[in-house]
């Protein structure tokens, strides 16, 4: 669900060790990279490496049918570009039923059927879905080993609150890191630096830095990144001057990392 805010479709690359996703948004300003290791699943088996092309917008709609206590099983046949999504419901309401959502992979061209939206009214049925997928090419090359000048670790809930609050007041934000202070400032279109409204930084913030950095970013993207905050208690902001910001949420068996290109020439 976090990814679908940024990218509409992407390939889940599956191998014996993990499931990975990496995709850019349409404007090429942000990139999301996700990895979930095999131990993060109750059971996991991958007989051969394969990409699962998924329309994330549609997948998110399917996921809305699940409740927190549902166990979700993903199965893809070896010979077909088909993914089978089954909710093994434990709640009393859902117990007599389970869903089997199926969709074709990247080669499929059939449109997403309109009856999908009626799925909640068709509980006793197996519902088979064909979801058309774009031919967007994901980035498959691994990222270079970037060494950042600063790393700020803070509670993810605080980061979410800060960017949400500031997004009510402006479209951009400047993040400055010095030895003892992280300053996240709202930028006004015609304001001078002295007019910036500083947000307080809560306890639990760790600053690691080699060099002072000051970067400007679009708040809209940061707010979207922060929707991954429920996945991890902490978020790391990795920055160097004039390079993309890395917002990293690590969880027990994987991570979601978001990259955001800065604004330059402020």
């Amino acid at each position: 669900k976090s990814c679908s805010i940024l990218v509409t479709d992407a390939n889940f690359e599956c191998n014996e060790e993990n499931i990975m996703l990496q995709a850019m948004d349409n404007s090429h300003i942000a990139l999301v990279s996700v990895e979930i290791g095999a131990p993060g699943f109750t059971s996991y088996r991958c007989d051969r490496t394969m990409p699962l092309g998924v329309d994330l917008t549609s997948l998110t709609k399917v996921l809305r049918c699940a409740k927190d206590e549902n166990i979700c099983t993903l199965k893809a046949a070896d010979e077909a570009d088909v993914l089978n999504l089954v909710y093994d419901a434990k709640s009393a309401f859902f117990s007599p039923f389970f869903f089997a959502f199926m969709w074709h992979g990247r080669d499929a061209s059939s449109p997403f059927p309109p009856f999908f939206l009626l799925c909640s009214a068709l509980l006793p049925l197996f519902i088979h879905l064909n979801i058309s997928l774009s031919s967007q090419t994901p980035i498959t090359s691994s990222w270079p080993e970037t060494k950042y000048d600063t790393r700020v670790t803070l509670p993810s809930a605080e980061f979410t609150r800060i960017v949400r609050d500031l997004s009510q007041l402006g479209e951009h934000v400047r993040i400055e890191v010095s030895k003892e202070v992280v300053r996240i400032s709202k930028l006004k279109a015609k304001s001078s630096a002295e007019d910036e409204d500083n947000d307080s930084i809560p306890t639990g913030v760790v600053i690691e830095m080699n060099q002072h950095v000051s970067l400007t970013f679009s708040l809209k993207y940061l707010v979207n990144f922060s929707k991954s905050g429920s996945l991890s208690g902490e978020v790391q902001l990795l920055m160097s001057n004039d390079v993309p910001l890395l917002v990293a949420y690590d969880f027990t068996q994987g991570y979601i990392r978001c990259y955001l290109a800065p604004k330059i020439g402020d």
Binding site: S27, L31, I139, P144, S218, P244, A261, I264, D266
Partner: peptide, 14 residues
């Protein structure tokens, strides 16, 4: 407010 950069400038794309 400055120019919005894209990621292509910073990272190699296939």
């Amino acid at each position: 407010m400055g120019r919005q950069q894209t990621l292509g400038k910073f990272f190699e794309m296939p």
